[in-house]
């Protein structure tokens, strides 16, 4: 069973966002595998451990992304592919077309990705890739069982829980709760150094600039106004509860109709 994982490198969620000259500063920032993609890497390795095959981790980005690809290799993925070409923008249309070009030339039985990235958070790329490859997909899965030619997945649909069965090949995006990602072991880290990491550009994917021309562009970025600490309530517990009830009723109008 051949498995591909769509992986993005993101800011560690502990990081603050700082603007320098109107752009998000990457100075001194710790980068990690997007947490949702980490579940995808873990799930891919578990499927391989059960059914055999290979796990390929795939990223679009610059050379800095190699460190996260190596982390995935150290966890147990077999090979890594980095699509690195400055002509590919951050637009989801562009990125998904580049990934789909690779995967249509290198088909897999199972493709895994994260539910969304914790940086740009648009949640588009994996689903676009599935559609471009004409594959079924299940997003936000909290459980996945793969068998020969079929898979069963459980997904969260705004509180409702759906059990889905799809024919393979198919794509799945990982939701929290799918698994507990492993830490890379020391032997894993040593082995990862020898595992193949292939770098591809648009030419290698037989794409031209016009195939990946972005459809949207960022025009500016801003920070939200800082929130100030408000008021500490004082008095006895009962007095504080009275005050909270006043605040809540004023803010929500709950129960006001009775008095109207």
């Amino acid at each position: 069973m051949n498995i591909a994982v769509l992986m993005k490198q993101t800011f560690d969620t502990e990081e603050k966002v700082v603007l320098t000259d109107g752009r998000i500063s990457e100075a001194g920032v710790k980068f990690v595998i997007n947490p949702y993609d980490e579940y995808a890497v873990e799930e891919a390795i578990r499927i391989k451990e059960k059914h055999g095959g290979t796990v390929t981790v795939l990223s679009v980005g610059n050379q800095d992304v190699a460190q996260s690809l190596r982390t995935a290799l150290a966890m147990g993925a077999d090979e890594a592919v980095l699509i690195d070409d400055h002509r590919i923008g951050t637009d989801e249309y562009s990125v998904s077309r580049a990934i789909a070009a690779y995967l249509s030339a290198n088909p897999c039985d199972v493709i895994l990705g994260g539910n969304f990235s914790v940086d740009l958070g648009s949640g588009q790329v994996a689903i676009r890739v599935a559609r471009l490859l004409n594959l079924p997909h299940v997003s936000a899965v909290t459980s996945l069982t793969v068998d020969e030619g079929r898979a069963a997945a459980v997904r969260d649909l705004d509180g409702d829980v759906q059990t889905i069965e799809v024919a393979l090949p198919a794509l799945f995006t990982a939701q929290q709760g799918l698994n507990e990602p492993r830490y890379p072991s020391l032997p894993g880290i040593m082995k990862a150094k020898k595992k193949p990491l292939t770098v591809l550009d648009l030419d290698a994917l037989k794409l031209t600039t016009s195939d990946i021309e972005p459809r949207t562009a960022r025009t500016s970025v801003e920070l939200p106004p800082a929130r100030q600490a408000g008021q500490r309530l004082t008095g006895t517990v009962d007095e504080q509860v009275q005050k909270l009830a006043d605040i809540l009723l004023a803010a929500t109008h709950v129960g006001m109709s009775k008095h109207a």
């Binding site: 966002v17 603007l19 998000i24 562009a217 960022r218 025009t219 970025v221 801003e222 920070l223």
Partner: peptide, 8 residues
Amino acid sequence: KAFERRQF
């Protein structure tokens, strides 16, 4: 943590 403006 931040907001972006995007155009088509």
